[in-house]
């Protein structure tokens, strides 16, 4: 393979178009049992354009959820955000006061979690919870709010929405609960929805329905979507671009087809090769070893202990460079990375 010529990092939106969300050099640390602080999110940067879907993929503990929580400033001790900027509507959310922040949450950024029971309050009906959000953001009250609730439940294709509005979360199946949470996330008409493993807990047929729904909602509401998942198959059918996280850092970022068909980073390649189903009856190509816990990462490339391609340069921390135009990678195998 002849490496392409050096090029600057390019995974940024076209000139002149301000992205809806811009995350710049975000760093969030956690205090460990021994008192040291270690980064769970380490210099993460990406942008999401209006109407765009970015897939954030990575294995357990890579920092996907902490990234999501940092964006809306919901990181709780022992974690704290120590650096970077998160810009939405031209404002750095780290400069806002708590009241302004609350209006960003819900009104500009909606949340869908893996486990609906986390977001849905078990003691209130689905309808009451959506009405509450409508009231908080001064969008609708009384009969108008009730009508809006039924519209929203209908939009997420919950059958008999007028009856389901009066149901408590535990009275719904997993799939219906996830739909109700999506309705709640959409109720204040956010511009961006952050969906953190929205289908991981669901059966494959229900997962396919929810992904269809998210696709339709994206079109109907002109939503931007930050879709967090560990399943590259899920991003394949959903995302415009993909960012791959490993040990708190984004190691590769490019249009979805490029990541899937021309993966640049050894970790992304390993991840794709270890996915089952491609060649029945054969062994899988596993990546050796496991992700080290935060606080015990190597000083240089975090993937080095597991990397089949590592060489001397990898004792240093690789910068982001372009493997191809619009295809960012954090690896010394690519020119311009200073190796």
């Amino acid at each position: 393979m002849t490496p392409p010529a050096p090029a600057p990092a390019t995974s940024q939106p076209a000139h002149g178009v301000a992205p809806l969300l811009s995350v710049e050099d975000l760093t969030t640390v956690f205090r460990l049992a021994d008192g040291r602080e270690a980064p769970a999110v380490d210099g993460v940067s990406f942008t999401i354009a209006s109407g765009e879907t970015l897939g954030l993929v990575g294995e357990s503990g890579s920092g996907k959820s902490v990234t999501a929580l940092s964006i809306v400033r919901l990181v709780r001790p022992p974690g704290r955000i120590t650096g970077g900027r998160v810009v939405i509507d031209g404002h750095n959310v780290f400069d806002l006061d708590e009241r302004e922040m609350r209006s960003i949450r819900g009104r500009r950024i909606g949340f869908v979690f893996q486990e609906p029971m986390v977001a849905l309050d078990p003691v209130y009906t689905i309808g009451a919870q959506i009405e509450e959000t409508l009231a908080v953001h001064a969008l609708a009250r009384g009969a108008a709010a009730r009508r809006r609730v039924i519209e929203l439940l209908d939009a997420v294709r919950i059958p008999r929405p007028d009856e389901r509005a009066d149901a408590y979360p535990h009275q719904l199946s997993g799939g219906l609960r996830q739909r109700a949470m999506i309705a709640l996330a959409l109720s204040a008409e956010p511009a961006l929805v952050i969906a953190d493993e929205p289908t991981t807990a669901l059966d494959v047929t229900v997962q396919a329905e929810i992904l269809d729904l998210l696709r339709d909602m994206r079109r109907a509401f002109n939503l931007s979507l930050l879709l967090i998942t560990h399943d590259l198959g899920v991003v394949a059918g959903m995302a415009d671009r993909v960012a791959v996280m490993y040990a708190g850092r984004i190691v590769e970022q490019a249009p979805t087809a490029d990541v899937l068909h021309a993966p640049a980073h050894p970790y992304t390649r390993g991840l794709l090769a270890s996915m089952p189903g491609a060649r029945p009856g054969t062994r899988l190509e596993a990546i050796a070893g496991t992700v080290p816990p935060i606080g015990s990462l190597p000083i240089g490339c975090a993937f080095a202990p597991r990397c089949p391609r590592r060489f001397e340069a990898c004792d240093e921390r690789p910068p982001i460079t372009a493997a191809a135009p619009g295809h960012d990678v954090r690896c010394f195998l690519y020119p311009g990375a200073g190796a």
Binding site: T205, Q207, L211, G237, A257
Partner: peptide, 21 residues
């Protein structure tokens, strides 16, 4: 058929040809 067509696939972009049951 519903189960098999619901599997997320790496080679598909856009809506899957899903069969519902």
């Amino acid at each position: 058929r519903a189960l098999l067509t619901a599997i997320p696939r790496l080679d598909v972009t856009g809506r899957l040809d899903r069969v519902e049951y």
